[in-house]
Simulated scan of single mutants.
Amino acid sequence: MPAIKTGKKTEKYTTEFKVKAVEWSHQAHRSVKSVAEALDIHPMMLSRWRKEHREGKFAMKRVKRAPEDAKKKITEQDEINRLKRQIAELQEENDILKKFQRFQAEERQKRSDSSGNTNKSTA
């Protein structure tokens, strides 16, 4: 009976590629998900590689060079994350300033209402 072909293409990754991906995923400012997206692999695959690396299945020297396109993607992703954090911080500051401005306007309104005509004429 012939083997069933699903039409899926299975990628074969080198040990160097796997080790470098694992090293990147262990860096403090990077998540498994962001590294997996940059390398165009599934996060579960990277998690499996991390486990295999812990178990010593990748017995080789550390690799110093990574594919240029992967480095570029990760650098871009880091920049995007930094900018998103900065946008969130600026939006929070802007909201605080708006609240303070409303507070000041209300205080001015209260002062002007209370300092208005206190002499009530009775007729």
Rank of each mutant, 00 (worst) to 15 (best):
T14R: 14
D113M: 04
E68W: 03
E37K: 07
A21V: 10
K120L: 13
K8S: 04
I41G: 07
M45W: 02
K110R: 01
Q91F: 07
N81S: 05
K61T: 13
A3Q: 13
T6W: 01
K73R: 14
K5W: 01
L90F: 10
T122N: 15
S47R: 06
E37S: 08
K12P: 02
K98H: 10
N119R: 14
T15K: 15
R82N: 13
E79N: 08
K9Y: 12
E11S: 11
N119Q: 13
P2C: 05
E89S: 14
Q27W: 01
E76Y: 04
K64C: 07
L46Q: 00
K120H: 14
A38P: 00
E68N: 05
H26D: 11
N119Y: 02
R62E: 03
S34R: 08
K61G: 12
E52R: 14
T75A: 15
P2T: 03
N81P: 02
W24Q: 12
K33H: 09
R54H: 02
R50D: 01
S121G: 15
K99F: 06
R82M: 11
K20W: 03
P67S: 14
Q109V: 03
N117C: 05
P2D: 05
E107A: 10
E92F: 03
K61I: 08
S115T: 14
L90D: 07
K110L: 00
N81Q: 09
R54G: 02
R108V: 05
E92L: 13
H53W: 05
D40H: 13
R85Y: 02
F100M: 11
N119S: 12
R82H: 12
K12W: 11
N119I: 11
P67C: 12
K51G: 00
R62A: 05
Q91N: 15
P2K: 01
T15S: 15
V22T: 04
I80G: 04
L90M: 12
M44I: 06
L97W: 11
R30P: 00
Q104A: 06
R108F: 06
S121T: 14
V19W: 02
R111A: 07
L97Y: 08
M1V: 09
K51H: 10
R102G: 04
E16G: 14
R50I: 12
K61H: 13
N81R: 05
K73S: 13
K64G: 08
S112D: 12
I80D: 02
E16D: 15
P67M: 13
K73E: 07
K72A: 11
V32N: 02
R54L: 11
N117H: 06
Q27F: 07
K98R: 10
F103I: 04
M1E: 08
E16I: 10
I41F: 01
L97M: 13
E16Q: 11
K98F: 01
